[in-house]
C-alpha cells in the first residue's frame, strides 16, 4: 500500500530522517517506534506531503484515501464535536447527503455523542477521540495516527488501542507512531525502530525476534546505537 525509499530530511544542521526505507502492506498495523526526536513525526509529515524530503521517494498506491490524527489535536474551541466533524467533512468535500449519517456513526464509534458540549470543555481523551473520528471521515483506506495515546490515562489508552484493533479487523491499514511499547506490542503487526533519524531494525509480532520481547529488542537496539 505504501513504500518509502531512502528518505532523507535535514533541517539546517540536524538530520531528522536519515536513509529511511520501509513498506506497509494492506490491512496491517505498522509501527514507527522510537524515543522522542527519533524522526517519527517527520516521517509522517513526509508521507502526508506536508514537508518535502531532501531525497528519497514515497509511493502510495493510486487512489488511496488517507486519514490523519495529529499528536496534539487542536479544534476550534467554540464548536461542538459534531460541528467540528461537519467542518472537516465540508473541507474534505464529503457530499452533504452523506455527512449527517457518517458523522453520527463515527462519533458513536469513538464513543462521543453528538451533544452540545463544546470542544473547549473536552478532556484530553475526548479530544484524541475526536481527532480519531475526523481521521475516519471519508472512509480512508490508510490511517496515520501520530501518538494517539499520548497524554491519556490508562482507561483512555485502552479505549484507543481497542479502537485501532477494531479498525484493523475492518481491513484498514494503519501507521501508528508511538513510543509506548506496550501499545505497539498489543496492536501492531510490524514496525521499524528508529533512533535519531536512523532505522535501527525491524520488529515483527509473530516473528521469532530471537526470543526477545519488544521491550528487550528496543532497549538492545537503542542502547547499542547510543554507545
Amino acid at each position: 500500500m505504501l513504500e518509502c525509499k531512502n528518505l532523507i530530511k535535514t533541517y539546517k544542521t540536524k538530520t531528522a530522517v536519515n536513509d529511511l526505507s520501509f513498506c506497509v502492506n494492506e490491512g496491517e498495523v505498522f509501527a514507527l517506534l522510537g524515543s522522542n526526536g527519533a524522526g517519527k513525526t517527520t516521517t509522517i509529515k513526509i508521507i502526508l506531503g506536508l514537508i518535502k524530503a531532501n531525497s528519497g521517494t514515497v509511493h502510495i498506491r493510486d487512489g488511496v484515501r488517507i486519514g490523519y490524527s495529529p499528536d496534539t489535536p487542536y479544534f476550534p474551541p467554540f464548536l461542538t464535536g459534531y460541528e467540528t466533524m461537519e467542518y472537516y467533512a465540508a473541507v474534505g468535500k464529503i457530499p452533504i447527503t452523506q455527512r449527517k449519517s457518517q458523522i453520527t456513526s463515527l462519533l458513536e464509534i469513538v464513543g462521543l455523542s453528538a451533544d452540545k458540549i463544546k470542544v473547549k470543555d473536552y478532556s484530553k481523551g475526548m479530544l484524541q477521540r475526536l481527532a480519531f473520528a475526523q481521521a475516519l471521515l471519508g472512509n480512508p483506506e490508510l490511517l496515520i495516527l501520530d501518538e494517539p495515546t499520548a497524554g491519556l490515562d490508562a482507561l483512555g489508552r485502552i479505549e484507543i488501542i481497542k479502537l485501532i484493533g477494531e479498525l484493523k479487523e475492518s481491513g484498514k491499514t494503519v501507521i501508528l507512531n508511538s513510543h509506548i511499547l506496550s501499545d505497539i506490542e498489543q496492536v501492531c503487526d510490524r514496525g521499524i525502530i528508529m533512533n535519531k533519524g536512523v532505522q535501527l531494525g525491524i520488529w515483527e509480532k509473530n516473528a521469532d525476534n530471537a526470543g526477545q520481547s519488544l521491550q528487550e529488542h528496543f532497549v538492545e537496539l537503542i542502547g547499542g546505537a547510543d554507545e
Binding site: L48, G49, Y68, T72, Y74, F75, V91, G92, K93
Partner: peptide, 13 residues
C-alpha cells in the same frame, strides 16, 4: 503553530 493547517492540507486544500 497549532498544526490545524495539517488537517486542511491532507484534505486536498
Amino acid at each position: 503553530e497549532r498544526h490545524t493547517n495539517q488537517l486542511i492540507f491532507i484534505r486536498g486544500v
